[in-house]
Design a protein around this nucleic acid. Sequence first.
DNA 1: CCTTGTGAAGCGATTCACAGCG
DNA 2: CGCTGTGAATCGCTTCACAAGG
Lengths: 235, 235
Amino acid sequence: MIRRLPQARSRGIPEATVARLPLYLRALTALTERGVTTVSSEDLAEAAGVNSAKLRKDLSHLGSYGTRGVGYDVEYLIYQISRELGLTQDWAVAIVGVGNLGRALANYGGFVSRGFRVAALFDSDPGVVGDHIAGLNVEHIDELETVIKRRGVSIVVIATPADAAQQVCDRVIAAGVTSILNFAPVVLSVPDGVDVRKVDLSIELQILAFHEQRKANREGGGPAMAEDWQQGASA
Amino acid sequence: MIRRLPQARSRGIPEATVARLPLYLRALTALTERGVTTVSSEDLAEAAGVNSAKLRKDLSHLGSYGTRGVGYDVEYLIYQISRELGLTQDWAVAIVGVGNLGRALANYGGFVSRGFRVAALFDSDPGVVGDHIAGLNVEHIDELETVIKRRGVSIVVIATPADAAQQVCDRVIAAGVTSILNFAPVVLSVPDGVDVRKVDLSIELQILAFHEQRKANREGGGPAMAEDWQQGASA
DNA sequence: CCTTGTGAAGCGATTCACAGCG
DNA sequence: CGCTGTGAATCGCTTCACAAGG
């Protein structure tokens, strides 16, 4: 679903590690705000919700930034992780589709806090174009290519209905964008070199439902349909 | 970050497979709407954005629902996957925190479409309590335990600010909830047997930024800070 | 002959356990 | 002595390649 980048492991950082670095960054930021200047792998791992061996292995991919017998310098580690993730530069993000979700994203503080700047909002609905949301003017989708280029947008968030997503995707790629965060419940097809991440709220709920059902069945009975379970796979 | 359930693999379905079943379900639903009644692993895999060997292995964990030389019956497979995911029953979901995101989630059609029913909305802000959103009355957080029990809520979505999330989490667990979808940017600590999944919008962007930076550096130059790269990890 | 279902090989990530170093 | 950094063992998922079967 996510087309792997040609050299995702270029300098040798595993994808799984990259996905956890933001977690460490968040934990470190929280520590700094509490005035903590040094932290052990044990404590940082606890704060980030992972185990300490994994944390140390992850950090070892960035370099040897700890001090044996002591731990890690919080500020320094924040800087190194930020640099590795590319958060020391400013990223212009555009959000396409200003429905409920797009609006929520535009107003979401977590974006701005880490080098991300919402630089443009687009919609195709004339009733929405021209609205001011989070200090931005909603522009018509016709302006997509022009505005993306003019404002140097490098990451696009797709928050459109499912049936518009692929079309928007094609257009932003044609405009030079190679990083897309997709909230629409469709599989986007993209050429090599374009990175797509997806968030599907309904999928997360379905995974929870699976486990919830498991738990209910184990505890004896459950809410419903506990009958045809152990009868094998015969059609 | 996600505490593994004791018997996540009970009847032997790998987590990775569970996470893809909703994807297959979506692809199958789309096929059915186009009138397709039978599909090969090759075609279904393509529609779901995975490779066909993986799809066949995944489905084989549910049973032998295909016909060699022919493929899978679309309707039948939809039923089997739905049943496995627990979507043949009705799940009452509560959303805590009716800010921009909570509102968007309450109005999100994808929830309702698959056995999920938003049964309650909570907020602590008196200015929001009493509002009608998506046909529901927003209730005060004080009613959390009562309403959860009365309406049989089994899945809770936390869409509160970060500093309220743990407290809400503790309360819903005390009320008997064991499945939580967390949008707040904090690591929730929960007892064994409680399943937490998290969605962090800012983390997804950070992962994209990492790859984007890689691409920019490889293509020669990039937007900024292309200097101190190849100089090793010396502090 | 076509497509499923699956042993077996391959691969990446996690975990263990301890050597190395401040 | 304590904590980091890491080779080695392990685990689980993916992919291959083909036997089984309509």
